[in-house]
Write a protein that binds this DNA or RNA. Structure first.
Lengths: 135, 135
DNA sequence: TATAAAAATGTAATCGCTACAAAAGTATAA
DNA sequence: TTATACTTTTGTAGCGATTACATTTTTATA
């Protein structure tokens, strides 16, 4: 995604009041490319924001989702990850090192088959396998 | 997928003892094309198998997954669905009627971008939008 | 500075799923 | 058949992620 230079402005532009917690959560999402879980975000940020509540992280992510600046990454059925890159791209999860890689998708190469005429709002592609390092 | 004519044989072929409960769960998965949740399977089957336990449904699906005859459909982050069609295909979920449609994918049309050289074990594509009926 | 509104926090409750032990069913050998 | 071991099913208890909700804190406004 295009780098967000000024988080405060970016949130305002998306109709979100830039509170301290919201800015820190968004900053965490954009600076790390690890598609973190709620728990990961909470555990990292509480190191620097000792009063942070997990509920705040949940509330914040819910708001970000509603405003469309964050998407969910559903790769495993027992963990929900979040991604501040809302542009079309795929996710690859290595079954060995558990790393998640982003990869580009050429929109014109997507094969919508018999649902061509449906109205398409979101496209999600994820792949599991073994990455180059672990092969 | 190619229709499973004889469930008992199909399970045996996949190294699964065809108990009554297992056959009924598998039959439900193949006869309905609704990609059911555990709860849906349980609630439907208990009408005819009054002693059925939800744990059995969980155990059975876990076994089917391990043996590779069932895959998970992760479209929503708060519900896990199951699919007895393990061949490559996409899922479309209508945001209005909530129906899930299968659609064919041409494997050669998948754009693996910069992860071409990774070892690919599973490919999942799902799309959200509005179906023809609801447009 | 007072008041109202918004956001953050902490606790309790809910729900899906799993762990585990007991009961029921199945296969095997004498 | 009967005894024994093994597998499967069942029910209960427990765990962990998420949500609901009331309270506290912060921010905005008059």
């Amino acid at each position: 995604m295009t780098k967000v230079e000024n988080i405060s402005e970016y949130l305002l532009k998306n109709d979100i009041k830039p509170s301290y917690q919201r800015m820190r959560v968004f900053e965490y999402l954009t600076s790390k490319q690890n598609h973190p879980t709620v728990d990961k975000i909470y555990k990292e940020l509480i190191k620097e924001i000792p009063t942070l509540s997990k509920t705040t992280v949940y509330n914040t992510l819910k708001l970000f989702m509603e405003k469309g600046i964050v998407t969910v990454v559903n790769i495993e059925d027992n963990e929900v990850r979040y991604d501040a890159d809302t542009s079309l791209h795929g996710h690859f999860k290595c079954e060995k090192c558990e790393e998640i890689y982003d990869f580009k998708i050429n929109p014109s190469n997507i094969d919508y088959g018999e649902i061509k005429n449906f109205k398409i709002n979101e496209t999600h592609l994820y792949i599991k396998g073994v990455c180059d390092k672990c092969k």
